[in-house]
């Protein structure tokens, strides 16, 4: 066969990539994927539910557990509502690894951000991301590739941090390649130097900056800037510290990352106590008008 059409090229590539799973999982579509693996949508015939099956694109050539297996192990250790649970894992006849996980239905954070979503909702989503990442850090896992494309928001406000394939869990790395995404990687990660939880804090700062759009308030911009400071020592040292500052901002309290001016403080205090201030003002004005009317 000398000529293969573009359509046949696509079909042949898909055919060669198609995973040969056992009868339990019937593949119904492709959800997406990246350099490491492809995620298929499948129906679990035993439990009668839809699941996601992630399959490595190629078997590891050096006989080691590949990143996909490592990701499955990490996910199985991280039992948190913001982290996708793993149901099953195994080996395909052609040597590729796969694991089965909950099928998350929703939109990626970058897709959410492209819509006009109120700031309060955006910050609520971000706070849920922080909870999941803080949980991972507490279990010694650093994600290393946090970005809006790796965060899924469900229809009921639930948030899932996805793609833990390059996470660092204290064990030796499968390879020494630089991992992460430009713009979300701190300088130490770009230099392939050892990283710790503060690398994720840098990425979270970048996510927050994108989440807030072009004209964030100064306090929020300062939080994002502190989180992604080029010097790890000058970032928030823990996700909890970052979360606390975001929470203060949401509750109109002063944040540690920003020293506000007298005017800004007045405006913030006014907005925080807007209703009681307006009530008192209304009472004072009414009282004044009443007294004036009575000629007192």
């Amino acid at each position: 066969m000398s000529w293969i059409s573009d359509r046949a090229i696509d079909q042949l590539r898909a055919a060669a990539a198609w995973p040969e799973l056992d009868d339990r999982y019937v593949i119904t579509g492709v959800a997406g994927g990246g350099g490491m693996g492809t995620v298929y949508i499948a129906h679990d015939q035993v439990l009668d539910r839809d699941v996601a099956v992630k399959v490595s694109n190629v078997a590891d050539q050096r006989g080691r557990p590949d990143r996909l297996t490592r990701e499955a192990h990490i996910l199985s250790r991280l039992d948190h509502p913001g982290i996708v649970p793993v149901h099953d894992a195994g080996l395909l006849p052609d040597g590729r690894r796969f694991y089965v996980m909950k099928l998350v239905r929703g939109r990626r954070l970058d897709q959410v951000m492209s819509q006009p979503v109120p700031e309060a909702i955006r910050l609520d989503l971000f706070s849920r991301v922080l909870e999941a990442v803080a949980f991972a850090h507490a279990h010694g896992v650093v994600h290393r590739d946090l970005k809006p494309e790796n965060i899924m928001a469900g229809g009921f406000g639930e948030v899932f941090v996805m793609d833990w394939g390059v996470a660092q869990d204290g064990l030796p790395d499968p390879d020494s390649a630089i991992v992460g995404t430009p713009g979300f990687m701190p300088p130490e990660q770009e230099d392939a130097a050892p990283v710790d939880a503060r690398a994720d804090i840098f990425a979270l700062g970048a996510v927050l900056a994108q989440l807030m759009g072009d004209h964030p308030s100064r306090a929020l911009a300062a939080i994002a800037a502190k989180a992604r400071h080029h010097d790890p020592q000058r970032r928030y040292q823990t996700v909890e510290q970052l979360a606390a500052d975001v929470s203060r901002f949401r509750h109109r309290e002063p944040v540690t990352a920003y020293r506000e001016t007298w005017t800004e403080r007045t405006v913030r205090v006014y907005r925080r106590y807007e209703l009681p201030i307006l009530l008192v003002l209304a009472y004072v004005i009414m009282r004044f008008v009443l007294l004036a009317a009575l000629g007192v």
Binding site: R7, D10, Q11, R13, A14, A15, A16, A17, W18, I27, G29, V30, G32, G33, G34, G35, M36, T38, V39, N57, V58, D60, Q61
Partner: peptide, 17 residues
């Protein structure tokens, strides 16, 4: 591995089954 990942990666799979 890199070439195989690109050849068999998700961009190859739009045709599906």
């Amino acid at each position: 591995e890199s070439e195989a990942a690109r050849l068999f990666g998700s961009r190859a799979l739009d045709a599906g089954d």
